[in-house]
Design a binder for these strands. Sequence first.
DNA 1: TATTGTTATACTCTATAACTATA
DNA 2: TATAGTTATAGAGTATAACAATA
Lengths: 148, 148
Amino acid sequence: MTATARQHALDQVLELVGLLNDDMTKALGRSGLTVPRAHLLWVLVQRGPVTQQQLADSMKVSPRNITGLVDGLVGTGFVTREPHPTDRRASLVSLTEQGASTSAALQDGQRALAEQLFGGVPPERLRGFSSGLDDVLARLRELTAEGS
Amino acid sequence: MTATARQHALDQVLELVGLLNDDMTKALGRSGLTVPRAHLLWVLVQRGPVTQQQLADSMKVSPRNITGLVDGLVGTGFVTREPHPTDRRASLVSLTEQGASTSAALQDGQRALAEQLFGGVPPERLRGFSSGLDDVLARLRELTAEGS
DNA sequence: TATTGTTATACTCTATAACTATA
DNA sequence: TATAGTTATAGAGTATAACAATA
């Protein structure tokens, strides 16, 4: 009985993951971005100009992969790759104006999405949802920490 | 005030999406599968042997893509591709024993995950979570139906 | 010697367009 | 003429390994 309730909850979560993934992919595509490229942009918004090594660490991805993502973003005008002022081995990746304004627009879009998804949910119910999610996230973080 | 609560809820959901995606990718990798290949297997579990065209429709992906996914799954022994009994243009894709038993194991893993994630959540709280999710899913389905 | 990033190589997922075989 | 699937081509994300330049 409760086991089926838990199974149902997981099914719901998996459907959510799929729908949200599709929605994000489409929205980013309209801005000329992909999910990994938007992720990189987001790191730059949070951390400011950084080296590719730091990007690789932040995104938990190989340095080779960062080279490719930055190449793409330079090509489409979202970031610049400039020589590092003190370390001549390294590059410094920065947002262009276009990169910064697009990132801001994406954030606005996210705020709008939050309103669309949760705007009609009564506060009491939203609290319950959010608390339940906290429990689930705590467990998931443990699992992924172990499993790495 | 409530706007920040809604924003927080979306942040939680996005973290959930990321963690769950990583967890699934790793778990499937241990079984020699990827997310799209597991998706294909899952369609076969539900529908039985089908043509590649039917797979393309079910998965909302190009026929060319199905050719590649089936090639990979045939190569790793999860499915077979056999001539269709009545339509000589078409192939019939079926689960092998290995494909069926791996699919069953994945389902067991999912049941276990549901227990790990929700097992410690009190029934009352789980109900609240699930109800909230229902609201959110309804809105998301509308959004993705429009935006397509 | 250690670190930064690139080139070389390879695999997976994805798409469109042209083409073959069959209906 | 329409449908099923493949070949041809292309692009994005991912990884490891070898290597050059610099620290």
